[in-house]
Design a protein around this nucleic acid. Structure first.
Lengths: 191, 191
DNA sequence: TCCTTTCTGGATTGATCAATACATAATTAA
DNA sequence: TTAATTATGTATTGATCAATCCAGAAAGGA
């Protein structure tokens, strides 16, 4: 009954994620977005409403994808220690490969901390990481891999905090050795 | 031989630190700065050169002050465990009191990661924290407060990374309990 | 009292910002 | 074919951006 959309919306959001991730919210202009998404402003506003709304949508997409990856890794091959080490190592490798990206959630937390919609997503994302880690640690404890005296919830909160620290120092280009030293020390907390 | 400056430059930089800290670089307009510093644009550009140059100068001031505070705390009453705990607790209290500020260095790392001058300052600041912590840990180890088997450098890198994580989750408004759990777990690494 | 120098702040610059208006194109139902 | 509806992209909006201009004010030296 009407003209059909010429671009793929999911793909457009993926490209927006990439752009916001690389450049941040303020440094990404509407013109940048239109060029990256290959659409005109009419389509943009009809589809996404505003730059801010697209940012929130991109953030949701990012959190969903990254959260899924984390869950998949944690649910993979058992052995909580190598799994946690793998999670942290992959973050370090990502930071070394491209120090300018970091984590979109961390970037949002520091850049958009006073925008309620964004701040809400940040809080949710952090709690999601905490929850995933707590679940994995509880299962590991049930398997006897972690001392019964340990508190999986506290360990999860510690690891969640440490992960955010890795994303920051990764952006500060402190070098591989720095981060690997921090990692080795951090995982010792499970012993 | 010429007209004298009517405002105090150090005080102006202090106010700029406060503004950039609260609002970030992009979200702080020149008009905001002129109003906060109570000067006109002529004086501004004659004195500071540009918005970016003032930001770098503000960042330097911030790093100097905060670095001095950290050194003072670490050089204070001995007992490395309570001292480290005090450092971390003060960060948590600051985040709880005003979650929108966080740490200017962390904010810069995520917002201005690709501006060479800013990125350079961020790197320096992180290494300064590492160095201060390493020094304190080495002295504590010499006093016998930390096992000789521990590596103060590794511990410092770990704590430095963890501190950055605290500043991030503090901005995410995860609550006091979350951060105190993380803290309690982190300081156990010294045992 | 002039002269030179520096500081000051309002006016102005051109660029860029996010967002809107609108004419046209594409689609389906009637 | 016609009407109704939605998508598209260009042109344009008013606002705001960082930065510059410039005329006048304030200081000390001659």
């Amino acid at each position: 009954m009407a003209r059909i959309r010429e671009f793929d919306m999911d793909q457009a959001v993926d490209r927006a994620v990439d752009l916001f991730w690389r450049r941040g919210y303020a440094e990404t202009s509407l013109q940048d977005l239109l060029k990256e998404l290959s659409i005109g402003s009419g389509s943009f506003y009809a589809t996404f409403g505003s730059k801010e709304q697209l940012y929130i949508r991109s953030l949701d997409r990012y959190i969903s994808v990254q959260g899924g990856d984390l869950e998949a890794t944690l649910d993979g091959t058992p052995g909580i220690r190598p799994v946690v080490r793998r999670v942290l190592t992959s973050l370090i490798e990502a930071d070394l490969a491209d120090p300018t990206r970091g984590c979109l959630v961390v970037n949002t937390a520091t850049e958009c901390g006073d925008r309620p919609l964004a701040a809400d997503r940040v809080n949710t994302a952090i709690r999601q990481v905490e929850s995933s880690l707590a679940g994995a640690l509880e299962r590991a404890q049930a398997r006897g891999e972690i001392s019964p005296e340990k508190n999986p919830g506290e360990l999860a909160r510690f690891l969640t905090t440490f992960i955010q620290g890795i994303r920051v120092v990764g952006g500060a280009r402190v070098g591989r050795e720095f981060m690997e030293d921090a990692l080795s020390t951090a995982v010792r907390i499970l012993d």
